[in-house]
Structure formats: C-alpha cells, structure tokens
Design a protein around this nucleic acid. Structure first.
Lengths: 197, 197
DNA sequence: GTCTATATAAGGATAGAC
DNA sequence: GTCTATCCTTATATAGAC
C-alpha cells in the first residue's frame, strides 16, 4: 500500500471516530504509521486532506441518490428507496452529516455549499417526480419541499443525537446500528401514510 | 444594566450568530463594551459562560415541553403542540440545537448528557401517553421511539441545513423564517396521517 | 520521500497594577 | 471591579537535514 493510500485510510478512520474538529493530524499520522510532516507533504492541509476523503465518498454517493430519482417508478417508491440508501450510507460514514452541517454553517465556506449537488442535480428530478405523480393522482397533496426536508431529518437525526439515545436507553453500539436498521422499515411506513392519497 | 447582564446579553447574541465554536471571547467582550479579562472575572471560562446562557433558556424551555405532555389530551394533540412549541423555540434560539449536538458528540462531556432531562423527565410521560392512547385505540400502532426521533428530526433539520436551503431556493432570512412558520402546519398534517389509526 | 525540530497563529486564560 | 499586558496550550504548518 502506498503512503498516500495509508494516509487516506487512516484519515477516514479518524474522521469517522472523531469528526472533523476532533480529528488531530497527529492521530492520523500515528495511525498511518508515518509522521505528521508527511501529511502536509502529501495533502498540504487538514482541509484538503478531508476534502479528498469526503470527495471519495461523495463521488459515488450522490450519483447513487440521483440514480434512485431517475428510475421509472413512483415517487413513493423512490422515497422509500432513498431512505434505505441514505440510512445505510450514514451508518457507514456517520462523520459525513456532521462535517456537512459544520461546514455549511461556517462563514467563508460558501463555495462548499455551491459545490454540493443538491440545488442543480438532486432537487429538480425529485420535485419533478413528485409533480408528475401528483397530476396522475398517485400521491397525496403535500408540500414536496417540506416533505423532503422531513425525510432527510428523520433519517439523520438519530445519528446526531446518538449519545443521548444510547444513554437514555442503555444501547450498545451494535444495538444502535440495529435500531437504525429497523428504522428503515418504520420510516417507509410513515412515508406511505403521508403520501398515500 | 449591570456588567454581568451586559455580558450575558452580548454572549447570547454572539452564540446565536456564531455558534459555540465560532464565538470568540473577544467578540463577546467587544459587544458588551467591556474587556476580555472581565469575562473571565465574571464567568471564569467560555464553557461556564455558555452554560449560564444555555441554562437560562433550558430552565424555561424543558418545563414547557414537559407541560405539553402532562396535559389531559390525546397523544396526537400533544405531538402537534410539541411541534409548534419546538419550532418556535428553535426559531428564537437557533444556536441551541447546534450546541447540544456539538457537545454531546464531544468526548469528555458525558456529564452534560446526563444533565439533559430527556431520559428522566421527558421520555417517560411521552411514552406513557402513547401507550395509554394505544390501548384505547386512539392512535395507530407505530414504534413510539422511532416516531419521536422522527418528529424531532423533522423539526430540527431545516435549521441545520439552512444555508443549503437558502442557497438552493434563494431565500432571504425572513423567507426562511416564514417557511418554518408554515412548516408547523405541514408537520401537524404528517403527524395526523401517521398516527391516525 | 522521510524524518526532526521549530515556526506560526489562534484563542482562552491569568497576573498584577490601579 | 476594571484595565493592559502577557502567558499557555493546542494544532496546523513548514524548514531543512538526510
């Protein structure tokens, strides 16, 4: 394995464990079994190192989401598939929502917001899909923006509030993961109830 | 106005604007028109200053939530009231969710988690209320934990993703606030759809 | 490419005069 | 109580030898 790969792998692990802020360049270096200066030699800065790790994930995740909404099925089915895909993804890379939330809410990071594909690639097909089904009477009359915000919120929130949840219900990490796995079907039920005309 | 009050007011404003991490003691001092050393004289540390600001809000907010769930109405009505109260609250103090999320996900802050009233004061009446109505057939069979997580997520998420939202839909701050105001009724509809037997 | 050693910067905290 | 000046710590980043 090349040094660069070793760094990327170590960085991913540390970012998952500690989040962007909590992650220390020293820890990444230790885990990669190289030395701190090498991180900067290869990636120049923490920001750029993270961006590489982030982009590796984003590169295949966003197209996958886009894929869900370009399929030839109903809006309800698409949303159900979205929930499944999204929760699995966050379960694997729980640091991503934290990073996105942190970054978009930091001043001076407007360019990051603009690079996210939501506005240009994701939102249009999602809303189109809703309006098409709406005209055919296949879906209840709701506000699609409010609805999409709700679904994303339902998926993400338990990961953000995880420590409270684990404390309140004495959950081991595996139990939390299992709860999220069960959550997929629960959310599908909610979605159907909301969207069935 | 006493120096202490001036500091608390300035601190609140800065924490709202910049979040806990983004807030600078210097900025708080500038706004309070006193000097940085005074902050430490009065509150010893940034953590303790924040805790005061946070506790001032928590002190009346959590009891208010508890009040909703101790009322003598249906679970559905309680959840509707919760949504209204919660969104209004976050609209007023948008820094609170950020702070809670940040803090509970920081290692070494276990005591903060334990001090939150969710486990002991909030969760029991909420779930009791569900089970009572469930036995009477007043509410659909869902998983109350998953449901509560969903409702909180639906309320909070737009505030966390606000910059993306404002960018994607070209929203001015007043328009965002209005969208959140409209959101209250939209979420009430979702809740009814999910919970109606 | 890889290391050690050090610079740099930010920001919270404190000492000490008044 | 209030100020100025300064310290201390933490982490990122870089210089320069090998």
């Amino acid at each position: 394995m090349s040094t660069e790969e070793k760094i990327l792998e170590a960085a991913e692990a540390i970012f998952i464990k500690d989040g962007y802020d909590g992650a220390r360049m020293q820890d990444i270096a230790d885990r990669a079994e190289i030395n701190k200066a090498m991180l900067h030699y290869y990636f120049r800065s923490k920001d750029q190192l993270f961006e590489r790790v982030f982009n590796e994930k984003a590169k295949f995740f966003f197209p996958e989401i886009a894929g869900v909404f370009s399929k030839d099925n109903t809006f309800i089915e698409k949303m159900e598939e979205f929930v499944e895909l999204y929760i699995h993804f966050i379960n694997q890379y729980p640091f991503i929502p934290f990073f996105i939330i942190r970054t978009i809410n930091t001043s001076g990071k407007e360019s990051f917001i603009e690079k996210l594909p939501f506005k240009d690639s994701l939102a249009p097909p999602i809303f189109n899909s809703y309006f098409q089904d709406s005209q055919k009477g296949l879906v209840a009359e709701i506000n699609p923006l409010q609805f999409v915000l709700s679904v994303i919120g339902m998926c993400i929130f338990p990961f953000l509030g995880r420590p409270i949840l684990q404390h309140a219900f004495d959950l081991k990490p595996e139990q939390f993961t299992e709860l999220m796995e069960l959550r997929i079907n629960e959310l599908k039920i909610y979605i159907r109830k909301i969207l069935t005309p």
